[in-house]
């Protein structure tokens, strides 16, 4: 597989480590959220046959975490974003 890194261009997927669903970005605040909410966050996943947003880490590259939009049926990758940008756009701060 080839992942088109937003900064570095096409890179072999061998250089990356896969984590899982990009919803892991949406971590609840531990001071306000309870066990139920964290349970939803950590364990509940959709398992789509089709478009899936997922986290990949460019461990053997520039150490960027990326959000990769990949079709789980065809393996086509339609979008790659820096996870930091995605996190900011989803309102995450400090």
């Amino acid at each position: 597989m080839i992942i088109h890194h937003p900064i570095l261009g096409p890179r072999d997927a061998q250089e990356f480590v896969y984590l899982g669903d990009a919803s892991l970005i949406d971590r609840p605040d531990g001071m306000t959220a309870g066990i139920e909410e964290f349970h939803e966050y950590l364990y509940q996943r959709t398992n789509p046959a089709g478009e899936h947003r997922e986290l990949w880490y460019h461990e053997q590259g520039d150490r960027s975490w990326l959000v990769v939009t990949r079709n789980t049926v065809t393996h086509e990758i339609t979008k790659v974003e820096l996870a930091r940008d995605v996190a900011r756009s989803r309102g995450r701060s400090k």
Binding site: V17, L24, R27, L55, E59, W65, R84, R92, S93
Partner: peptide, 19 residues
């Protein structure tokens, strides 16, 4: 050593990007 570093980068970039 490797997995902790990876985890810290995840926390830094994905969870608290403004830190």
């Amino acid at each position: 050593a490797v997995t902790v570093f990876r985890h810290l980068e995840f926390c830094r970039q994905c969870l608290w990007p403004e830190m």
